[in-house]
Deep mutational scan, measured.
Amino acid sequence: RPMNAFMVWARIHRPALAKANPAANNAEISVQLGLEWNKLSEEQKKPYYDEAQKIKE
């Protein structure tokens, strides 16, 4: 299954978030990633939607 825009973004940002929160488990990191993603504007998300579309094609 191809990655969606959030997954493209999260793949880039997960390592830094995990390093900054070494005690957090994957579920907690995923929740935090979701919160951070939701704070982004549509303009900030656009490159990730574009990349996800390329992956689908």
Rank of each mutant, 00 (worst) to 15 (best):
R1C: 15
K39M: 09
N25K: 06
A52D: 02
E51V: 12
L40S: 01
A10T: 03
H13M: 14
Y49L: 05
Y49F: 10
P15E: 11
Q32F: 10
I29E: 01
I12P: 00
I55Y: 10
E57I: 11
I29R: 02
K54F: 06
R11E: 15
E42R: 12
I55S: 06
Q53H: 08
F6A: 01
R11L: 14
P2R: 11
A10E: 12
S30V: 11
Q44A: 11
W37N: 00
A24K: 11
W37G: 00
A5D: 01
W37R: 00
P47V: 07
A23G: 13
N26C: 13
R14M: 09
E57R: 12
F6T: 00
Q32I: 15
G34F: 15
Y49N: 03
L33H: 00
N25P: 06
A24V: 03
K19Q: 09
K45C: 01
K45F: 01
Q32S: 05
N4M: 11
K39N: 07
Q53D: 10
K19F: 07
A24Q: 04
R1E: 14
R1I: 13
F6N: 00
Y48M: 01
P2T: 13
Q44C: 06
K19L: 11
P15C: 14
A27H: 12
K19T: 06
S30W: 15
H13G: 02
E36M: 15
E43V: 08
A18N: 05
E36D: 06
E43N: 07
A20T: 07
P47K: 05
E42M: 12
A16D: 07
Q53T: 09
E42I: 10
K46S: 06
M7K: 06
L17K: 02
I12V: 09
A23S: 14
N21T: 06
M3I: 14
A52W: 12
K54I: 07
E51K: 11
I55F: 09
P2H: 14
S30A: 13
R1M: 13
N25V: 03
W37Y: 01
W9K: 01
A52P: 02
Q53P: 02
S41I: 02
E43Y: 08
A23L: 13
N25C: 06
E42Q: 10
I12R: 07
E36P: 00
M7T: 08
G34A: 15
L17G: 01
A16Y: 11
N38L: 12
H13D: 00
V31D: 06
Q32K: 12
Q44R: 05
P2V: 14
L17I: 14
N4K: 05
A24C: 07
M7D: 15
K54C: 08
A52M: 07
M7G: 06
Q32Y: 08
K45Y: 01
R14A: 11
A23V: 06
N4D: 12
V8Y: 10
I55C: 09
E57D: 12
I29S: 01
W9A: 01
P22H: 03
A23C: 13
V31A: 13
N4C: 15
S30D: 15
Q53I: 09
A23D: 14
P2W: 14
N25A: 05
F6G: 00
E43P: 06
K56D: 08
P47L: 05
F6S: 00
N4P: 03
L40F: 03
I12Y: 09
L17Y: 12
L33D: 00
K19V: 06
V31G: 03
Y49A: 04
Q44T: 04
P47F: 07
G34L: 15
A24D: 02
Q53W: 05
L33C: 06
D50H: 09
W37C: 00
S30K: 09
A27V: 09
W9S: 01
G34M: 15
L40C: 02
N38R: 12
V31T: 10
Q44L: 05
W37T: 00
Y48Q: 00
L40A: 01
R1K: 13
E36H: 06
Y48C: 03
K39I: 04
A10Y: 06
P22M: 03
E51S: 06
V31E: 09
K56A: 13
D50L: 13
D50I: 14
E36G: 04
N38C: 14
L33P: 01
A24P: 03
A24I: 05
D50Q: 09
E43L: 10
A24H: 05
D50K: 11
N4R: 05
E28K: 04
E28L: 06
N21L: 09
E51Q: 12
K56T: 13
P47H: 05
E51R: 12
Y49M: 07
E42F: 14
P2C: 15
N26G: 10
K19I: 07
P15V: 10
D50A: 11
A20D: 05
K45P: 00
K45N: 00
N4I: 10
E51P: 02
K54Q: 08
A18Q: 14
S41C: 03
E51H: 09
W9M: 01
N25W: 03
L35Q: 09
Y48N: 05
K19R: 13
K39T: 04
N21W: 13
N38Y: 07
Y48G: 00
K56P: 05
A16R: 14
A20E: 06
K54Y: 06
Q53E: 11
Q53V: 10
W37D: 00
A16Q: 12
N4Y: 08
M3K: 07
A18L: 10
V31S: 07
L35V: 09
K39Y: 04
A5G: 11
P47N: 03
A16M: 13
A52R: 02
Q44P: 00
A24W: 15
E36K: 08
K39W: 03
E43S: 09
P47W: 09
E42T: 11
I29C: 02
P15W: 09
I55P: 04
L40M: 11
M7L: 13
E28M: 10
N4F: 08
E57W: 05
N21Y: 13
M7R: 08
G34D: 11
M3L: 13
E57M: 11
A23H: 14
K19W: 05
Q32V: 09
E42K: 13
Q32R: 14
N26F: 15
K46M: 07
S41A: 03
K46L: 07
A27P: 03
E43G: 07
E28G: 03
P2N: 14
V8F: 11
A52V: 10
R11G: 08
N38A: 13
L17H: 03
R1F: 13
Y49P: 00
A18D: 02
A5H: 01
Q44H: 06
Q44Y: 05
N38K: 12
A52H: 03
E28W: 15
N4S: 15
Y49C: 04
L33M: 04
N38W: 07
R11A: 14
A52Y: 11
E51G: 04
K39P: 00
W37E: 00
S41E: 03
Y48D: 00
K46C: 05
N21S: 06
P22T: 03
A16K: 14
E43M: 10
S30E: 15
I55W: 07
P15D: 10
W9N: 01
A16N: 06
A23Q: 13
E43A: 12
E43K: 10
A20F: 04
N21K: 04
M3T: 10
E42Y: 14
D50V: 12
Y48H: 01
K46T: 04
M7A: 09
M7E: 15
P2Y: 13
L33I: 02
E36T: 07
R11F: 11
Q32D: 02
V31H: 13
V31I: 14
K45I: 02
P22G: 03
P15T: 08
K19G: 04
L35Y: 09
V31C: 12
N26W: 15
P15R: 10
R1Y: 13
Q44S: 06
E36Y: 07
P2Q: 14
L40Y: 02
Y49D: 03
R11C: 15
Q32W: 10
F6K: 01
E36F: 08
P22F: 03
N25S: 15
Y49V: 06
V31K: 13
E42H: 10
D50Y: 09
A10S: 09
Y48L: 01
A24T: 03
K54V: 07
W37S: 00
E57A: 12
A20C: 07
